[in-house]
Amino acid sequence: MEQDLELRSAVSMIINAGYQLDREAFEFLEDASKRLDINRLVKSIIEEVSKLPNKPLLINRELLEKKASELWSSEAAQKSMVTGKTGFQPFAKEVEADLTVLEDPAEKLSGTGSLNEYIEYFKDRFKKLSRILNRRVDVRNAVTIVEAFKAPVKSEVKIICMVTEKRESSRGIFIQVEDLEANATIFVPSNNHEVFRKGQRLVLDQVVCFSIVKGERNFFIAKDILLPDIPMRKPNLSPTPVYAALLSDLHVGSS
């Protein structure tokens, strides 16, 4: 009840000062009221904002987080002066843990490590990445390697494939690729600097789309290399201004 009154008082203070509060900022205040003196926080922000030459109409979450961090650091410093103790006082230490296991895949893991499972894994991975690539407007007309073999010489086609081998020379890069039906060789000439740099960055087992020109004897020359698009999604932020450091081993390639 007391927290609700403090929250109402803080919001009223912001509105009476002539500012607006967005939803994320309100959620932050609501959560911060459990640990901080939010009236002091809001007063400090209003004083700071009022001194700006171009006053904002909106007080957002970022501004609240910054000021809350400053106040927390100040309070921690004062405590260390009183107690005579010094050292780092992490804000996250005061935040109660809130962990939820959304899904545990342990029961679904039944692999034996056989060759067939290994092949099925790569097939499934190839299909999923192919679907992501096909969302690109400039990839929707891609064909299989077998269909590309049937194309007339000097015609331009696009194929979605997996990189299986790379050999770089002074003239360019020879890249062995495959899909679910066949394999082929694609040459990336060094005089096509932009595509050549893309080819250098490719790693084995990477699934990409090649824009190619059909040559003699089922030989292809790369005109461009198209990568899967990463969808732009708004991050799901925590209402509490804390950070997490996630530690893991690093995998590069197909592992």
Score class of each variant (00 low, 15 high):
Arg131Gly: 00
Lys127Pro: 01
Asp138Ser: 09
Tyr121Phe: 14
Arg171Pro: 03
Ala92Phe: 07
Phe122Asn: 08
Met81Ser: 14
Val82Asp: 15
Arg136Lys: 15
Glu147Leu: 02
Arg201Gln: 09
Leu180Trp: 03
Phe187Pro: 01
Thr112Gln: 08
Phe122Ala: 14
Arg135Tyr: 04
Pro152Asp: 05
Asn116His: 08
His193Glu: 10
Tyr118Ile: 04
Ala142Pro: 03
Ile160Pro: 02
Lys93Ala: 14
Ser114Glu: 05
Lys93Glu: 15
Thr100Asn: 08
Val153Thr: 12
Thr144Asn: 02
Pro189Met: 14
Asp179Val: 11
Phe126Arg: 00
Tyr118Asn: 05
Cys161Trp: 01
Leu180Ser: 13
Ala142Gly: 11
Lys108Gln: 12
Asp138Leu: 06
Arg125Ile: 09
Phe88His: 04
Val137Thr: 12
Glu181Pro: 04
Ile132Thr: 14
Gly87Glu: 08
Ile145Tyr: 07
Met162Lys: 05
Gly87Pro: 03
Val95Cys: 03
Val82Gln: 13
Lys166Arg: 07
Ile173Asp: 00
Val188Ser: 01
Arg125Ala: 08
Phe91Ser: 03
Arg125Thr: 15
Ser80Asp: 11
Val163Pro: 01
Glu178Ser: 12
Ile186Thr: 06
Leu115Gly: 12
Pro90Glu: 07
Val137His: 09
Lys93Tyr: 15
Gln200Ile: 08
Asp124Tyr: 02
Arg197Glu: 15
Thr144Val: 01
Ala97Asp: 13
Ser155Lys: 07
Phe187Leu: 10
Phe174Met: 06
Gly111Leu: 14
Phe88Lys: 10
Phe122His: 13
Asn134His: 05
Leu133Asp: 03
Gly113Cys: 10
Pro152Cys: 03
Val143Phe: 08
Phe187Val: 09
Lys150Ile: 12
Ala148Trp: 00
Ile119Pro: 00
Ala151Pro: 02
Ile186Ser: 01
Val177Ala: 08
Glu181Gln: 05
Arg136Pro: 02
Ile175Glu: 05
Ser114Met: 10
Gln89Tyr: 05
Ser130Asp: 14
Glu107Gln: 13
Glu94His: 11
Val101Trp: 06
Thr112Cys: 05
Ser130Gln: 11
Val195Ile: 09
Lys123Thr: 06
Glu94Ala: 14
Glu156Cys: 02
Glu194His: 07
Phe88Tyr: 10
Thr100Phe: 12
Ile186Val: 11
Tyr118Ala: 13
Glu103Ile: 08
Val146Trp: 02
Leu115Val: 10
Glu117Lys: 03
Pro152Ile: 05
Ser130Pro: 00
